[in-house]
């Protein structure tokens, strides 16, 4: 382990597999961030709920966890933020409980990590999703007025959060954060494109259950396709997993620079 005893710098390091080389990446430490304090990372699936399966036997749940752990480590190494995982081992956690963990820990950012699967074998690439909602949806309309001032929503959560154990689970909390979520998705996708050599599938919207109730900017990252044999092998390598974590971290950082201050 390395310790860099200088608060003006942040660092990251990579081991290269092919040649005996250690790359240490030093950069200017980030300015203080007032708004964003807590990040919740959600490793997709777990326990009996294995997620997608690859041809060679790789399980989605076993890929999302190491990527999430790596991402947590990078964030904690570089930023003064609290990072929570919805699971840190191979356990079953319901989607609603993941949302509750995020909201109970006052998540300021929520990132759900997944590996994709398709009916066609040659589907490849990475994509980042944020929640889609029906424009005609009554519930969405009910919350739409909050889009302009998410402060109103935060106040209400503050009020309800007096009891720490109380689970906050809002049916449509994400409605107030769609704009910021799309921005976060864009930043993360851009870095995935730069750091991975995967095909860019862009940012997309879908009605994902795990995003619906989260009361902060939230995205779901589909790293690559387990249903594609080439990408399945990639997904299993530590190098690829580290790059994914690094890319997501950089995307987060750009988002924090834009929204986290003032």
């Amino acid at each position: 382990m390395i310790k860099v005893a200088h608060s003006d710098f942040s660092y990251d390091y990579f081991n290269t597999e092919d040649s005996p080389r250690l790359i240490i990446d030093l950069s200017q430490a980030e300015e203080e961030m007032r708004e964003i304090r807590n990040i919740v990372i959600d490793p997709g699936h777990g326990g009996l709920e294995v997620g997608a399966k690859g041809k060679f036997g790789a399980l989605e749940k076993d890929i999302t966890l190491p990527i999430s752990l790596k991402l947590k480590a990078i964030i904690e190494r570089n930023l003064a933020l609290r990072v929570f995982l919805t699971r840190d081992k191979d356990t079953n956690i319901s989607l609603d409980n993941r949302v509750a963990i995020a909201n109970n820990n006052k998540a300021d950012l929520f990132i759900s990590i997944h590996a994709n699967s398709s009916f066609r074998k040659n589907a490849t690439g990475s994509e980042t999703f944020f929640l889609s909602m029906d424009a005609t949806d009554e519930e969405a309309r009910r919350l739409a007025y909050l889009e302009n001032s998410s402060a109103a929503l935060e106040d209400r959560i503050e009020g309800e959060n007096e009891d720490e154990i109380k689970m906050i689970l809002w049916d449509m909390a994400q409605a107030a954060y769609l704009q910021q979520s799309s921005q976060l998705a864009e930043f993360i996708q851009r870095e995935l494109n730069l750091l991975l050599s995967t095909h860019n599938r862009g940012i997309k919207q879908a009605p994902f259950r795990v995003l619906t109730g989260v009361a902060c900017p939230a995205v779901l990252v589909e790293v690559a396709f387990l249903s594609n044999p080439v990408e399945e092998k990639e997904l299993l390598t530590e190098r690829f997993q580290s790059r994914v974590a690094q890319a997501i971290y950089r995307g987060l950082l750009n988002f924090i620079k834009l929204y986290g201050q003032e």
């Binding site: 997620g51 399966k53 997944h114 699967s117 398709s118």
Partner: peptide, 8 residues
């Protein structure tokens, strides 16, 4: 097959 793309 699970997977976001397949489900969608």
């Amino acid at each position: 097959p699970s997977g976001s793309t397949a489900e969608i």
